[in-house]
Design a protein around this nucleic acid. Structure first.
Length: 671
RNA sequence: GCCGCCUUAGCUCAGUCGGCAGAGCGUCUCACUCGUAAUGAGAAGGUCCGGGGUUCGAUUCCCCGAGGCGGCUCCA
């Protein structure tokens, strides 16, 4: 005679027969749509088939939540792996975790997957889903797991890792704080890392058809996957290290409904339409001629106009904020980078040396050594500090061929770079005002959703003392925290000379980009023996702050281009106004209007081509020109123009003076 | 750098199971002079990414290289 147990189900008290599962308890409580449960608050997520104990507190996890989707995607990854092993027997398994917006699984197949393979795998997955296979959890001993997985070398390796001290037990959630870090590989925690070793069997009609090492939890059955699709295959290093063999990774996505999946795929399509490389060609902004070399852009007149507007505004704001402008060469003798430490710590990021006049010359990958020489060009007084040296400095970095990506990852780019020299007493205030300055300026360009990242010392690649790193890191941390923005740690992400705060900005479709970087550096002033004379006559060492707001102008350009989907606000638009005559007879009149606008600094063109007026409107619309001024007989008679705006609205018969004022006002207010 | 895929007119792409290559857009010319997203007609434009190989013959098949795309590693 089983006794009843007392439960709390989604905060409501319930009683149930002993042996009741989480799924049954949720059903009895009328809770629908759950894919798993969280037991007793902080404990790991568990399957619905988990048998409950007296006093258990059960919290349902709906599919349409972050945790729920992760479980769904993890189950979809299992289905994919089963499909792959069905179709390609002998393919061994790597790891298969859920990731943001999808999942992947790594395989070691005999040959790489082709697009046709992916289609076949997806079809096989559909069959598996239709079969309503049950995911059955099974706890096994380490020895049994090894025996069952004898043919899976990578899984065996994971089992070995899971036995290290401190592994297991500490992990509470597939969405927890980077559980994979414990195993040194993202996603590995979804295979192992729980308090016990578990396998998941796929069972259909009582027969076990597939098994995988897995921590779970999973959906009850494969049929519970509402929507999935495979996206692409690519290579990935086993356990994330290029020293390890490469596996073939297949990416897919899965969603709680077909509509949700469709919406996701539409978001991807929108991101593709906004791709700055596509828009750059469509809008005639820049290109990457093969003749010049990979990762090296040329800006066309329209791209140049946008850059000019971006840079001019930045220049003005920096002058207002007390910066002084300097200029330095692109190339230097190797000695400079020996002094700075770049040749020791950054050589692989630099273009190879050139032999000149019996010495070695290098293209500069950073501007800081040059600015240090400006500082050192004469004796400095404490009265000059903080000394803020600014330059649009073009740098060249040898990026490996596979990583070059449009304007966001180039081999030559221009930093809006400044180095601030100040005393230790000044650095906190300087950093605080700098962060405010950064966020305000980014806001002026239309980005206003930020978080911060704190990159700390790489235990291998660094110069300077532990004490200085500690002080620099804590100073940056407290300044960042005082900003009120979210602060995300980035262990080991610092440059070799000092820790940094980076400002991450979210764009119009929710993607984040690293923009500004602020680095605090005690090391380079030491290496360059930079000094100033203090009020008491002693020689003191300044602190150096490296900072770039756009990061790189090219990257910032790309981010804005994608953020605005090519429709720059009027002040940045390469062509701000296009004059469109109804007939040839109106061209001269429009030219006069254009002359008036140009005299006010407006970038204006008159379309005097042979096209019909409708075609000209279409052309200007596709070029995303903010203002079209259309002129026919009525307008000429009234001394007016007719606006057509980028949003298709219009405003007809506006007197010329009022039209000019409207445009100038829009540009000057940076709307 | 590694893995896979790709490279045909200025752009986007067809195509040739190995037999001297096509469309749309763009460009140019001519006609049309038109009130808010494509007027019509005509023309020009290609060592089919580069080099080597196989073949009677290569844009097509093979190898090497360059560039691009998607990932991995790395990063502004």
């Amino acid at each position: 005679m089983p006794e009843d147990i007392r439960l709390t189900v989604d905060a409501q008290p319930h009683t149930a027969a002993a042996g009741t599962t989480a799924g049954e308890a949720l059903a009895a409580a009328g809770v629908k749509g759950a894919v798993a449960v969280r037991l007793n608050e902080l404990a790991p997520m568990r399957d619905l088939s988990t048998v409950l104990d007296d006093g258990d507190v059960v919290e349902s996890i709906p599919m349409a939540t972050d945790d729920g989707r992760s479980i769904l995607r993890h189950s979809a990854a299992h289905v994919m792996a089963q499909a792959v092993q069905d179709l390609f027997p002998g393919t061994s398994l790597g790891i298969g975790p859920p990731i943001t917006d999808g999942f992947y699984y790594d395989f070691a197949p005999e040959r790489p997957f082709t697009p046709e393979d992916l289609a076949a795998i997806e079809k096989r997955m559909t069959d598996i889903v239709r079969q309503r296979q049950h995911f059955r959890r099974r706890v096994v001993s380490d020895a049994d797991a090894r025996a069952e997985l004898a043919h899976e070398p990578f899984k065996l390796e994971l089992l070995g890792l899971s036995q290290g001290p401190g592994s297991g037990g500490a992990l509470s959630s597939a969405e927890g704080a980077d559980p994979g870090a414990l195993l040194g590989v993202e996603g590995a925690a979804s295979e192992v890392g729980g308090p016990e070793i578990t396998l998941y069997d796929n069972v259909v009609a009582g027969e076990q058809v597939w098994t995988d090492l897995c921590r779970g939890p999973h959906l009850p059955t494969t049929r519970d996957i509402p929507a999935f699709t495979l996206l692409r295959s690519a290579a990935a290093y086993w356990r994330g290290s290029e020293k390890n063999p490469q596996l073939q990774r297949i990416y897919g996505t899965a969603w709680e409904s077909r509509d949700a999946q469709k919406a996701y795929l539409e978001r991807q399509a929108e991101a593709e339409r906004r791709d700055h490389r596509r828009l750059g060609a469509e809008l005639d902004l820049f290109s990457f001629p093969d003749e010049i070399g990979s990762g090296l852009a040329v800006f066309h007149p329209k791209g140049g106009a946008v850059r000019l507007a971006m840079e001019d505004y930045s220049r003005r704001k920096h002058l207002d904020a007390g910066y002084e402008f300097v200029n330095t060469p692109h190339i230097t003798k190797g000695q400079l980078f020996e002094t700075s430490g770049h040749l020791d710590w950054y050589a692989e990021g630099m273009f190879p040396k050139m032999a000149v006049d019996g010495g070695d010359y290098y293209l500069k990958p950073m501007n800081c050594p040059m600015h240090n020489l400006v500082f050192r060009s004469r004796g400095r007084s404490y009265r000059e500090l903080p000394l803020r040296l600014f330059e649009f400095g073009t740098v060249y970095r040898y990026e490996k061929s596979g990583v070059v990506h449009g304007l966001t990852r180039a081999r030559g780019f221009t930093q809006d770079d400044a180095h601030i020299y100040c005393t230790r007493e000044q650095m906190r205030d300087e950093l605080t005002s700098l962060l405010t300055f950064v966020l305000e300026l980014l806001g002026d360009y239309g980005l206003d959703d930020f978080y911060l990242e704190l990159s700390t010392k790489d235990p291998v690649k660094f110069v300077g003392t532990d004490e200085d790193w500690e002080l620099a890191t804590e100073t940056l941390r407290s300044v960042a925290e005082a900003s009120g923005l979210a602060l995300v740690p980035d262990p080991g992400g610092a440059a070799f000379y000092g820790p940094k705060i980076s400002v991450q900005a979210r764009d119009a479709i929710g993607r984040t980009w690293q923009m500004s970087t602020i680095q605090l550096d005690f090391a380079l002033p030491e290496r360059f023996d930079l000094t100033y004379q203090a009020g008491d006559g002693s020689r003191q060492r300044p602190v150096m702050i490296h900072r770039a707001l756009f990061g790189s102008i090219e990257r910032f350009f790309a981010v804005l281009l994608e953020h605005y989907a090519g429709a720059f606000p009027a002040w940045l638009a390469p062509v701000q106004v296009v004059g469109i005559p109804i007939a040839d007879t109106h061209v001269d009149y429009l030219r006069e209007v254009a002359g008036t606008l140009a005299a006010q600094g407006i970038r204006v063109e008159v379309d005097d081509s042979d096209d019909r007026m409708q075609k000209k409107i279409r052309t200007a619309q596709k070029q995303k020109v903010p203002f079209m001024l259309i002129v026919g007989d009525d307008d000429v008679a009234a001394g007016a123009v007719s606006f057509r705006y980028r949003d298709n609205s219009q405003n007809n018969g506006v007197p010329i003076a009022a039209a000019v004022e409207e445009i100038v006002e829009a540009v000057n207010s940076r709307r």
